[in-house]
Write a protein that binds this DNA or RNA. Structure first.
Lengths: 156, 156
DNA sequence: AAAGTATGATGGACACGTCAACTACCGGAG
DNA sequence: CTCCGGTAGTTGACGTGTCCATCATACTTT
């Protein structure tokens, strides 16, 4: 690649900073809305969403972790906290004695149901409504391009 | 606003998820590279950058916090950790007995100098090089639009 | 079947962030 | 000068994430 500079120039760096700071801010705002509306963190919401969509509201820990893209350790810690709050329960797995299942509890279902509409509304108000349709499409393409690029460099 | 739906449709939601997950992944990758290359976290880097650019490598805590956009409490915790590692030092402020100054230490300067080129390279490789020039420009515009939108709704 | 390897889950140690309480000090109103 | 509201900074409690060690169980190989 001819002229392949190694470092970003001033404009590129400034775009990077704007981009990363603004997405951080956006994430924080959505998270704060979710917390205020339902008392759930984004992590809680992701777990409850996966359990809600699963048959019988239960999932093997590893499957749940894979589904939401978390490390098992992270999930284990989080499930511990959610169990303390009565949102989910842990059960032993019948077919694999090593395994554990996370089971949705009524309190978890209630909290999730209360959270979801306001959460979707927040996404619309803070993200979708901020952008023109063209910008929204561009955001999707940018995410896809970044994702491909990062995946291609996982273990270079 | 006529026809103002309240909730995002399927495509909008999918774009949201892609966007937020990918930017998260990107942030994590850049952070991991920084950590591997220099032993610094993004927070460390932000603090050291501000101190490096300040006269005499020293700044009032509040000024530093404002400069990098952190809450004072967050900065206080972080400075404590950085002080334990010898990256910075805290001094009393001469003109205001309530105040404290953060002072860049040689170890901090060294770590920052070692970090900055690899960090800029990582930004280029993982962010800038992932996008076409048009996409990069669009990313800047999207960040600006999101930023304006969020600012306009700080206390609605 | 015994031995070795891989997998599922957990736990501790630590870094990081937020929130609210607290201390100490400043600067102005009276 | 005294009181008092505002400001600077720290601290503790707690939720959150990562890394790494550990343990038990499952699987695979001989």
């Amino acid at each position: 690649m001819p002229g392949g500079r190694k470092l970003p120039d001033r404009d590129e760096l400034s775009t990077w900073r704007d981009f990363i700071e603004t997405t951080d801010l956006l994430r924080g705002r959505i998270s704060a809305r979710l917390q205020a509306d339902s008392g759930l963190s984004p992590g809680d919401y992701a777990v409850l969403l996966a359990l809600t969509e699963a048959p019988d509201g239960r999932l093997r820990s590893s499957d749940l972790a894979a589904h939401i893209g978390w490390e098992r350790s992270r999930l284990s810690h989080h499930l511990g906290r959610m169990e303390r709050r009565g949102l989910i329960r842990r059960e032993e797995c019948l077919t694999d004695s090593r395994g554990a299942e996370a089971v949705l509890q009524p309190a978890g279902k209630t909290a999730f149901d209360a959270a979801t509409i306001p959460h979707l509304r927040a996404i619309r108000e803070l993200f979708v409504d901020a952008l023109t349709p063209e910008q929204l499409a561009a955001a999707g393409e940018i995410a896809a391009a970044l994702g491909r690029h990062l995946k291609s460099r996982e273990m270079p």
